[in-house]
Simulated assay, not measured.
Amino acid sequence: MRNISINQLDDTPRSVVAIGTDYSHGHLLPFHTHRRAQLLYGASGVMQVSTHDGNWVVPPQRAVWIPPGMAHEVLMLGVSTRSLYIEPGTVDLGGRCQVVSVSPLLRHLLMEAVEVPLNYDLAGRDGALINLLLHELKRSTPLPLHIPMPTEGKLLSLCQTFLNKPNAHQSPQQWSEQLHISLRTFNRLFRQQTGFSFRQWRQQACVVQALARLAAGEAVTRIALDFGYESPAAFSTMFRRVLGQAPSVWLEAAN
């Protein structure tokens, strides 16, 4: 099915409903929930997903798993999506959002799934396609594209400001001074709220925010300088440390 809301199809007597939707650049889906779990795959473009637990960037040809009932917001940057809406209990990728890899086989199955009839024959070819799709989905691996966020207060505000303008040189001392607390108290609070040390979080945030810009075609040099790195090489070294590959190699895998 194409360009139809899940709200019109939620009662379909099938465990999986597949919908393809094209979005204009900058289209925002405000916070909402689904009764079913959702696998949201971007065939093109970049998605920025937010929940109360954090932010995720979904580069082209990756997907995000959204558990049933989880409130989420999605900013679409030139995206053509393929979504699976899956009855709770059918497949379980965990109770939190996560960006997952999409194998070439899963990619083709997702593209084909939106073309099957709504009430597909469970015992026929289309039923077998959906079953294979679910098996392949279970083999997906999580990708480290999550930016955990504090739940509230001034620390949340500081994190949100940083995401709008990442700066690799910001220090925990600067943040502790803004919060009027000791450095030791700040470090303990930050880890309690995010699960990361400040420096780990800063690095993760820079990488994930950079991915959205890289996928949109921006140059590594421009991003590196904007984020405060001394050179593209310094940025690439940090990027490789987090994702295991240079920016150019990582993006090439999405094409």
Rank of each mutant, 00 (worst) to 15 (best):
S248N: 11
L28F: 06
L110Q: 14
M76Q: 15
D226H: 13
Q8E: 14
M149L: 12
V91E: 09
L9A: 10
L243R: 07
P142F: 04
Q203F: 06
M1C: 07
G78H: 03
N55V: 06
A254L: 10
V49P: 01
I66Q: 08
T51I: 14
G26W: 04
R188A: 00
A254R: 15
L9G: 12
R82A: 15
C97L: 15
R222C: 02
Q61R: 15
T21H: 07
A43L: 08
T237W: 03
M70C: 14
G124V: 15
A212D: 00
T12P: 04
L29W: 03
P68G: 05
L163F: 02
A219C: 05
A254V: 02
V64G: 10
V207L: 08
L214F: 03
L251R: 14
R199F: 04
A123D: 11
S157Q: 13
V100A: 03
D11W: 02
M76D: 08
R82P: 01
N255C: 06
A113M: 02
K165L: 10
E73N: 11
L93K: 12
V57I: 15
V64D: 00
T185P: 00
Q204G: 01
P67S: 08
L211C: 14
A43E: 13
V100I: 15
A18D: 07
G54R: 09
T90W: 09
V114F: 02
V16W: 04
I223T: 06
I6K: 07
V100R: 06
H52M: 13
E230F: 09
L145T: 04
N187F: 00
